[in-house]
């Protein structure tokens, strides 16, 4: 919950020590039990993966025709996102549904982990976000090349042949800016929220943090939605005709 500020994340420190980290070795160095052998944000990423896997297995074990409980919730989320994707990309969008919903649920779970006392949002660390953003960048370019073969270059050349070299440079810059802005947006928002929570907790422990929790639940959902939506828009740009 503390967004990288000094805080007691006891469990994973002990786990790292059990895995062979030596707390007697210089604290604060690269051998700090907080980040060695497995950094904290990686532990929490694995925790998010475990939560999603267990939830998925629980839903799959008792699928019913009339959804109830957890199945109802997941059908609402996946159904809502599917409508959204199909409204934006069209029927072609259905093939990307698994990856898009995975991204949304994964980011959402990791964001919410930051609100659990004693836990830390993995997305408050820039490495997690960069990994996801680079994956999205590679994936939509892969989809574009698979769909258009060599014709994918037309997406970079713009409408007028005379301006093509200029547009190529501009498009390459704006395409490379996409993973950067994806990374920084998620990182900045989540990290900022965690720091605000800690500061408010210092000022007035319960009365100020409790209302902020509701605001941040909304903000974190919107951040997950933005990551999902931008991935969808990039995929749409890769699949569509160059104009």
């Amino acid at each position: 919950m503390a967004g990288g500020l000094p805080h007691p994340l006891v469990i994973f420190r002990e786990l790292n020590i059990a895995l062979g980290a030596d707390p007697a070795a210089a604290a604060g160095s690269a051998l700090d039990p907080m980040i060695y052998p497995v950094p904290t944000h990686v532990w929490f990423t694995w925790l998010a993966m475990a939560i999603l896997l267990i939830a998925g297995l629980m839903v799959r074990r008792k699928l019913t025709l009339v959804p109830g409980g957890l199945q109802n919730f997941f059908e609402l989320v996946v159904g809502g996102l599917e409508d959204f994707v199909v409204a934006n990309i069209g029927e072609k969008g259905r093939q990307f549904m698994p990856i898009l919903v995975t991204i949304f649920l994964f980011v959402l779970t990791m964001n919410y982990l930051g609100l659990v006392p004693g836990c830390d949002a993995p997305t408050a660390n820039i490495n997690t976000n960069a990994a996801m953003a680079i994956f999205v960048f590679l994936y939509y370019n892969y989809v574009g090349i698979k769909t258009w073969k060599a014709g994918y270059i037309k997406h970079f050349l713009g409408p007028m042949p005379a301006l093509a070299p200029l547009m190529l440079v501009l498009e390459i810059i704006s395409h490379l800016a996409r993973p950067l802005s994806l990374t920084l947006r998620l990182f900045g928002n989540i990290r900022g929220e965690e720091i605000v929570l800690v500061l408010l907790f210092v000022l007035a422990p319960l009365y100020s943090t409790l209302p902020m929790y509701f605001l941040f639940i909304l903000a974190k959902s919107i951040q997950a939605l933005i990551f999902f939506m931008l991935t969808m828009i990039y995929l749409k740009g890769a699949v569509e005709h160059a104009h």
């Binding site: 810059i173 704006s174 800016a177 996409r178 950067l180 802005s181 920084l184 947006r185 919107i222 933005i226 931008l230």
Partner: peptide, 10 residues
């Protein structure tokens, strides 16, 4: 919400 960062990142 995405506009500002796109400008800066480019």
């Amino acid at each position: 919400g995405t506009i500002g960062l796109h400008l800066v990142c480019s």
